[in-house]
Amino acid sequence: MSQVKGFFKGVSAELKKITWPTEKEMKTYTVQVMCFVIVLSVFFFAVDLVISQVIGLLG
């Protein structure tokens, strides 16, 4: 039981070391992730379209 208690004390100590992002940083990160997802979606849509056209020409 003392090992479990020691584990949770260690977890608690480590959580106190974390520096959480500010609200402004979080908004910035969210916008960056959304932009990246949109860019990747457009890229994969274009690749899929090209591959579909090539397969259509071959078949």
Score class of each variant (00 low, 15 high):
F8K: 02
V42L: 09
F8N: 05
F8Y: 12
A46M: 08
V50N: 02
S2Q: 10
L58N: 03
E25F: 01
K27T: 04
K9I: 08
S2K: 10
S2W: 05
L15H: 03
G56Y: 03
V11L: 15
V37N: 05
S12Y: 10
Q32M: 13
V39F: 04
A46T: 09
A46F: 09
F44N: 03
F36R: 08
S52I: 07
S41H: 06
I55Q: 11
E23S: 01
V42N: 00
I38H: 02
F36G: 03
Q53G: 08
Y29K: 12
Y29S: 08
V37Q: 12
V37L: 15
T30H: 10
V37R: 03
I18T: 07
Q53N: 11
K27D: 07
G56S: 06
C35L: 15
V33N: 07
G6V: 04
F44P: 00
V11K: 14
T19P: 00
I55W: 13
S2F: 03
G10P: 00
F44L: 06
V39M: 10
L57D: 06
F43Q: 08
V11W: 15
G6C: 06
L58T: 03
I38F: 02
L40E: 14
F7H: 09
Q3W: 08
V4R: 05
A46C: 09
F7E: 05
F43G: 01
V4A: 11
F7L: 12
S52R: 10
M34W: 10
T28Q: 13
V39D: 04
E14I: 01
F44Y: 09
F43W: 06
L57A: 13
C35T: 15
G59C: 11
T28R: 11
K27A: 08
F45K: 02
S2D: 11
I38T: 05
G56N: 09
F36C: 07
Q53I: 12
V42A: 01
V4I: 11
M26G: 12
K9G: 04
M34Q: 13
M26I: 14
Q32V: 04
V37Y: 08
F8I: 04
K17M: 01
A13I: 02
M26L: 15
D48T: 14
Q53M: 14
A46W: 05
S12K: 11
Q53R: 12
G10S: 06
T22C: 01
S12M: 14
I51N: 05
Q53A: 13
Q32R: 09
V37W: 08
T22K: 00
G10V: 02
M26V: 14
F8P: 00
V31G: 00
F8M: 06
G59Q: 14
I51G: 01
V39A: 10
S2G: 04
W20F: 06
E25D: 09
F8W: 09
M34N: 06
G6E: 12
V54L: 10
K16N: 07
M34V: 05
T19W: 00
I55R: 05
Y29T: 04
F36H: 07
I55N: 06
K9T: 10
L15A: 11
